[in-house]
């Protein structure tokens, strides 16, 4: 089954556990990560008797004795406080229904979209039409996953021009980078504006050449999202394009 390099102590007296994986290893569901009660399961792993077992495909993150798995795939799941990019799919009585690449759609209420007075029978498509893209914040997610969103706030609102590309939501942290380092690098070296939604939808806006460069870089990040030292690699990648 799994090769253990360390010694497994199976006696009941003062058992010494063993770790069967290394930090940043790719682990798969059902894989035994460690034996012994001193290890603690966190996201993406669970305890079964003496063993810690992985429950999701991802990269192992070892923090002392805590085993956490950063997933490498998965659909976006709405969370209050997230900034997302969404598309209007329907007009409601007092707002809009939007989709954002998740199993659930969201509702943008009229009062969350504009501060001006709207007449009773006014045509809402004057404000947002079907197919329009918006940058929105998620304000509330109920237990049944009904999602409320807002476009009131800094950096939120309708998107005009540019283009939308989509990546897996698990790739978003790599595209943003540590404290936004990757986004800054992308923006500075392509001269193209970029807004990344937590749902993996990305809006880019610039000259056609800059946009092509940006798309190339984002695809490169997506394909190497599990690799460490990615910012350096992307820097070289972008210099190669120049």
């Amino acid at each position: 089954m799994i090769n253990s390099e360390s010694v497994v102590a199976s006696d009941n007296s003062g058992a010494v556990g063993s770790l069967l994986v290394k930090d940043h290893d790719v682990v798969v569901p059902g894989q035994v990560l460690a034996n012994g009660l001193e290890f603690l399961p966190s996201y993406g792993s669970y305890r079964d008797g003496d063993s810690i077992i992985a429950s999701v495909l991802g990269l192992l993150e070892l923090r002392g004795k805590v085993l956490r798995i950063i997933p490498l795939a998965g659909k976006y799941f709405p969370k209050a406080g997230d900034k997302i990019i969404a598309r209007v799919i329907d007009i409601l009585m007092t707002g809009w229904r939007v989709e954002f690449g998740s199993a659930y759609s969201g509702v943008l209420n009229l009062k969350e979209a504009t501060s001006r007075f709207v007449e009773r029978d006014e045509d809402l498509t004057k404000i947002l039409g079907i197919g329009d893209f918006i940058v929105a914040g998620i304000t509330n997610v109920t237990s049944q996953n009904l999602v409320d969103i807002t476009t009131r706030g800094q950096g939120l609102g309708p998107l005009r021009g540019g283009r939308i590309i989509t990546v897996g939501t698990s790739k978003v942290p790599r595209i943003i980078g540590k404290e936004g380092s990757m986004v800054k690098l992308l923006r500075d070296s392509t001269g193209c504006n970029i807004t990344v939604g937590q749902n993996g939808w990305i809006w880019i806006d610039g000259s056609p050449d800059a946009e092509i460069k940006m798309v190339g870089a984002i695809v490169e990040i997506e394909n190497n999202a599990h690799v460490s030292g990615l910012t350096d690699h992307i820097q070289k990648f972008l210099e190669g394009l120049r």
Partner: peptide, 9 residues
């Protein structure tokens, strides 16, 4: 598993 679902095994 490839789709990122949590699976016991």
């Amino acid at each position: 598993a490839d789709a990122g679902f949590e699976m016991k095994d």
